[in-house]
């Protein structure tokens, strides 16, 4: 990343390195109203189009935002390359799916169990692997993602290849209306995005950035890098697991085919495309990645080809992402 351009510099005594000063637009984009504006867009969307198909696509996009924000904690804030993030998504979806169908628990009641199980999963995978440096971590997480999927494919409690079906909605049957369900998911994800952004600005968030930039220097300055990385990994696991619960509620049926490497890769793509470490960027990236293939449906068989070409163009034109992170502390 290069030095901030004009928009990052506001104190009078410091001259901008290059570029324009803050305009109304850039000031708005850096302000705290931005999150509210984003939420308003989400709230108003069903007033524009509310066909069941559109609601389904929008709900999926919002769940995907949650996944991307969770992975952003791991990859964006802390710089740990995780290629198996769908594993946590699967762990969350299956935990709530199994508990709600076998024990007849309401879906919301499975959330504490999902949190416990995903934290455990985070510790089990992160514990040994976070002692490794990034490349090895990527390989191990890739393997782990496959292990979870193959395990779900072969266990009888997870329904094998056909998966689990008949998962109740978020509030029992009351949420069968897709618009109500969309709003419920939107509010939950909004809270999750806000919490992730706050984590990024907290003391531990600062430590994550230091570890990402230079692990050795961070350690020399007294940061317990292992603990800090594990914390990022566990936080990412919990976000992914909760997204899994929403996913299970939306589809009411889950199967191993939903948690492939492609899913991990798409989430990672949303983070990188949007701008690693930048909350608005990652939200935007997730929306683009999930809506673009739907919008390109008119191209029929060429849709994923066009999708790929567009992604390549974005990465060439904006290598730091659509909306890169800027330092706020000054």
């Amino acid at each position: 990343m290069s030095a901030g351009n004009g928009a990052a510099v506001q104190d009078p005594p410091v001259k901008p390195v290059k570029g324009r000063g803050p305009t109304f637009v850039t000031r708005f984009l850096e302000s705290r109203h931005l999150g509210w504006a984003g939420l308003a867009v989400g709230l108003l969307a069903p007033f524009i189009i509310a066909t069941p198909y559109a609601m389904d696509v929008m709900t999926s996009a919002v769940v995907f935002v949650m996944l991307a924000v969770g992975l952003n904690i791991v990859v964006g804030y802390c710089g740990l390359l995780d290629l198996g993030y769908a594993a946590f998504f699967a762990v969350g979806a299956y935990t709530s799916g199994v508990l709600s169908t076998e024990l007849k628990l309401p879906l919301l009641a499975t959330i504490p169990a999902v949190i416990v199980v995903t934290v455990l999963a985070g510790v089990i995978i992160g514990g040994p692997t976070l002692r490794l440096r990034s490349d090895y971590l990527a390989i191990v997480t890739l393997g782990f993602g496959e292990i979870i999927r193959i395990t779900a494919n072969n266990l009888s409690i997870t329904g094998g290849p056909s998966g689990i079906y008949g998962i109740p909605g978020l509030f029992g049957d009351a949420s069968s209306d897709p618009v109500v369900f969309y709003y419920a998911v939107l509010l939950i994800v909004a809270v999750a995005v806000l919490m992730a952004a706050r984590l990024g600005r907290s003391r531990i968030g600062r430590a994550w950035r230091f570890v990402r930039e230079d692990e050795d220097a961070a350690e020399a300055m007294g940061i317990n890098t292992y603990k800090v990385k594990l914390a990022a990994y566990i936080a990412g696991a919990v976000w992914g697991g909760l997204a899994g619960v929403l996913f299970a509620a939306q589809l009411s049926a889950i199967s191993p085919a939903s948690f492939t490497f492609l899913q991990s890769a798409l989430v990672l793509m949303a983070v990188v495309l949007g701008g690693m470490g930048s909350t608005p960027g990652v939200v935007l990236g997730a929306i683009v990645i999930s809506l673009l293939p739907e919008m390109l449906r008119g191209l029929a068989d060429y849709r994923f080809f066009a999708f790929g070409v567009l992604l390549i163009i974005v990465m060439i034109a904006r290598p730091q992402g659509l909306w890169p992170h800027r330092s706020r502390e000054r």
């Binding site: 990343m1 600062r206 230091f210 961070a218 007294g222 940061i223 330092s327 000054r330």
Partner: peptide, 17 residues
């Protein structure tokens, strides 16, 4: 080993982690 993508101020804050 300073953090080149972080501001001077943020670099100093790290020292006080």
């Amino acid at each position: 080993r300073i953090f080149s993508t972080l501001t001077v101020h943020e670099n100093l804050l790290l020292g006080g982690y």
